[in-house]
């Protein structure tokens, strides 16, 4: 007969090693299940750029298009709307757009490539609602000093006409300006940076566009 006394050290080792290897195996097995929740190849493919014709947009008007299932707003700002932008700076959280909420070529007061044309994703940086366009420079119930901009109906965050967030509201950041560029004087390609060496990378460009009415 073999020695039948209990080897406690060996028993402990076997228990611990079984537990550790078993736990490792469980974790590895869980990984594929966790990864099934990542965006699928089909979802990844749904993010193509969108080309928009803005020739019909008058000064002071707003156009909404969808890109990657998100609302992109294009605003042709009037001179009256533009002149108040700089004056809003003291009331804003991030007037100089220091937070990386826009490409480098849109890091200016207008947050734009062309001074008049604001192109951005109209999704509130608080919890992702779509703020409403209140473009007119006139007192509003939510802000007697309103100079035009965006107002979120969900939690009352406010943004100026450069999509910059005001102080004292729940939203922490300016709304996102996604990569885009002007293909010609009347078309914007949303989702793609300006080509290397383009003057659009310097921005903001001055002057009205061909086809756009003053």
């Amino acid at each position: 007969m073999a020695d039948e006394s209990i080897n406690k050290g060996r028993r402990r080792f076997l228990t611990a090693s079984t537990a550790v290897i078993g736990a490792g195996g469980l974790a590895l097995t869980a990984l594929p299940f966790v990864k099934t929740w990542l965006p699928s190849a089909r979802a990844e493919a749904a993010g193509a750029p969108v080309k928009v014709d803005v020739s019909k947009l008058e000064r002071g008007q707003r156009l909404r298009v969808g890109w990657q299932k998100k609302p992109v707003d294009i605003v042709n700002r009037s001179a009256d709307q533009l002149k108040w932008l700089k004056a809003q700076d003291p009331r804003l959280r991030d007037p100089d757009s220091r937070e990386p909420q826009q490409p480098k070529y849109c890091q200016n007061t207008y947050r734009a490539i062309r001074k008049e044309w604001l192109v951005f994703i109209d999704i509130c940086t608080h919890l992702g609602c779509v703020p409403d366009f209140y473009g007119e420079v006139k007192p509003e119930p939510f802000d007697p000093q309103w100079k035009g901009g965006y107002y979120c109906p969900c939690h009352h965050s406010r943004y100026d006409l450069s999509a910059r967030v005001y102080q004292g509201v729940p939203a922490p950041l300016n709304m996102v300006v996604m990569p885009y560029h002007w293909v010609d004087d009347t078309h914007i390609l949303i989702g793609v940076d300006p080509p290397a060496g383009s003057p659009q990378l310097k921005g903001p460009l001055e002057g009205p566009l061909k086809g756009a009415t003053a």
Binding site: W37, L38, A43, K69, K70, I121, T125, G128
Partner: peptide, 16 residues
């Protein structure tokens, strides 16, 4: 992105 299973730029995910 993992919870929704959809793609998007930072902070801009929508459920699908």
């Amino acid at each position: 992105s993992w919870i929704m299973g959809t793609v998007g730029a930072a902070g801009l995910y929508v459920p699908g």
